Computed example of a mutant assay.
Amino acid sequence: MSYYRTFRGFFRIIFSLVFRWQVIGREHIPKEGPVILCCNHISLWDPPLLGSGIERMVNFMAKEELFRVPVVGFLIAKFGAFPVKRGAGDRSAIRTTLKLLEDGKILGIFPEGTRSKTGELGEAMPGSAMFALKSQAQVIPVAIIGPYRMFRPIKIVYGEPIDLTTLREAKSSADTLKETSELIMTHIQKLRDQHRS
């Protein structure tokens, strides 16, 4: 955790001085218990921004290739990342994620699965919905409103928890996953619309 705090402090300085960040909605983050932060994805800066905006530690999935890069692998592991094989159902990563949530920790995830080239929201992959439905975590929509430009404001907005009670009580199916994914993305879009300037 000491490494994490050090890196978070470093990134907070960058976001404050270089990008003049604005953090909105920190009060919506539960002080304890499992949480899934579902955020749009526009840049490589997004994971550290998502984690730097709040006090609790945020854990991330990261493609396994990054862990084989000298220095980078060490740093992202210390910043709360764990490996996942992209393009395949990585059962180990799924188990790690569900155990993390069972232990009351925070998962940061980008439902689209890849960065948006246009800055607009894309279609969500089923992963975030699956974790939301298979856990009792509070699901928080998060919007990053960019682009990242030196000395220009970047906003990160943490929304209110999404009520998934009805969907969690429904029979698990592809339709339930799709509906959950769409609901998450709708909440992210609403935050983007509300806080664009």
Score class of each variant (00 low, 15 high):
G113M: 02
A137L: 05
G87K: 09
F110Q: 04
I94A: 12
D103H: 15
G89Y: 05
A88F: 08
K134Q: 10
D103C: 08
T96Y: 08
A93R: 04
I94M: 14
L107W: 00
K99N: 15
V139K: 00
A137N: 12
V139R: 02
F110P: 06
P111W: 05
G119F: 03
P126D: 11
L121A: 11
K99D: 13
R91I: 14
A137F: 12
Q138G: 01
E120C: 12
L133H: 04
A93P: 08
K134C: 03
G104H: 11
K134M: 06
K99I: 00
D90G: 13
R86K: 13
G127T: 06
M130R: 14
Q138A: 03
G122Y: 11
E120H: 14
I106H: 08
E123C: 08
M125L: 15
V139A: 06
D90I: 08
L107D: 04
G119V: 04
K134F: 03
S116F: 05
T118R: 08
F110H: 00
L101M: 12
P126K: 10
E102G: 13
D90Y: 10
G119I: 06
L107A: 10
A129W: 00
P111E: 06
A88W: 06
R86H: 10
R86G: 09
S92Y: 12
G89E: 02
L121W: 10
E102T: 09
A137P: 13
T114V: 11
P83M: 04
R95P: 05
A132H: 05
M130G: 01
E123T: 13
T114R: 01
R91K: 15
V84F: 07
